[in-house]
Design a binder for these strands. Structure first.
Length: 368
DNA sequence: GATGCGTGGAT
DNA sequence: TATCCAAGCAT
């Protein structure tokens, strides 16, 4: 008789039975190899399944295995990632692939401690790979699991709080069916995505409703308790489409900053009460050591980042006759391109909109 | 431990 | 339109 805890809890029983009938068909579930699990887990960080789906398919077609990823260029990797956001994920993925090739003969390590050493892999992803790819008893404590267990046990302390996290980890661990961590984790993620959703949860369809304390107390909509949010600032930003000798200027952003590694039309924040044209001349002088004439406005773009919003105004610009050529003083590279060339340069959303606009509206023919 | 890091969809 | 938020990680 097994007297250890290797007796599945009623919770896990009900959950796994529900999962057997309701599991989602997801592209990465058709790929049994650890590489696919890893790629999908990185893409899914803070990102919705429906956003990830086409990116994953395209990525696997382009980089079918770890070796092809390791051999790729950063530009290629970022181009395939463009639009997914949090671009350091792509650069970390690329660097980790190279480390795995060198240090582990191209095979993802199995232990969570070794996985944790790799760039872009934190506690969640290490546990997810260990459980889903290698069948280990690990808890991938993501937002879904936290939400579900905060409701099941009516946890009334805020997420992010160390005590709350410890409590939720203990609760999820206590119900883990040994040897079935892969299904357990994925079942909870599917339940969180399909039934125990952040808004309008479908409690009447939930396989765990009988044991849900928040449902019994009518506090489901209050759980989990979210930490207080800060107001996000708004900035006016200007960007220069610098034309010179029938080409326009792109600049590559530093890799450790916002939109790291992506190419942009250079510019920057407008200071309070500063005229837009003046701000643009100042930014180009500071960043590129060049003097420009600011010409026609090319458009206004509003965009929301996670922690601030911008209104960006783009202007057609030319180098002043006596200006030095632009240099990459704050960027990592510069390129003179045509609008058609832009497709090859990974960009963030707004810069891509500007590039597309230039392509569609025609390249302004300015002689100089 | 707090902050910085994208984007698109739902409400 | 504004807000919320979705399978976190690095510093």
């Amino acid at each position: 008789m097994d007297t250890s805890q290797n007796v599945y809890s009623k919770l896990a029983d009900n959950l796994l039975a529900w999962y057997a009938q309701n599991r989602r068909a997801l592209p990465w579930r058709d790929h049994p190899d650890p590489y696919a699990v890893w790629i999908s887990e990185i893409m899914l960080q803070q990102t919705r399944v429906e956003s990830v789906r086409p990116y994953f398919e395209r990525w696997m077609a382009h980089f079918p295995n770890l070796a092809t990823l390791a051999a790729a260029s950063k530009e290629e990797v970022l181009r395939l990632w463009e639009g997914l956001g949090y671009y350091s994920r792509a650069l970390h993925l690329h660097r980790a692939a190279q480390i795995i090739c060198e240090r582990y003969d191209g095979q993802l390590p199995h232990s969570q401690s070794e996985l944790l050493q790799l760039p872009g892999i934190g506690p969640y992803t290490a546990a997810a790979i260990a459980a889903l790819a290698f069948g280990q008893d690990a808890i991938a404590l993501d937002g879904n699991l936290k939400r579900i267990f905060a409701r099941l046990f009516d946890v009334d302390t805020p997420l992010g709080n160390a005590q709350t996290e410890k409590c939720l980890r203990a609760l999820t661990q206590a119900h883990l069916p040994h040897g079935k961590a892969g299904d357990y984790n994925q079942a909870l993620m599917d339940l969180g995505a399909l039934v125990c959703t952040p808004k309008n949860p479908q409690c009447e369809r939930c396989p765990l409703q009988q044991g849900c304390l928040a449902l019994a107390r009518n506090t489901v909509h209050l759980r989990p308790v979210r930490p207080l949010k800060k107001r996000i600032p708004h900035y006016d930003v200007v960007a220069a489409v610098v034309m010179h000798k029938q080409h326009l200027l792109l600049a590559r952003r530093a890799e450790d900053r916002l939109l790291g590694g992506l190419w942009e039309f250079p510019g920057g924040k407008v200071r309070p009460k500063e005229p837009f044209e003046h701000a643009l001349q100042r930014e180009i002088r500071e960043e590129l050591g060049a003097e420009i004439e600011v010409g026609a406005p090319l458009g206004t773009y509003r965009h929301a980042f996670t922690h601030f919003r911008i209104t960006l105004r783009a202007y057609l610009c030319r180098l002043q006759a006596n200006s030095p050529l632009p240099q990459a003083l704050e960027h990592t590279a510069l390129a003179w391109v045509t609008p058609t060339d832009c497709a090859a340069y990974p960009m963030g959303k707004v810069d891509r909109q500007i590039a597309t606009h230039l392509l569609e509206e025609g390249f302004p023919l300015v002689s100089d």
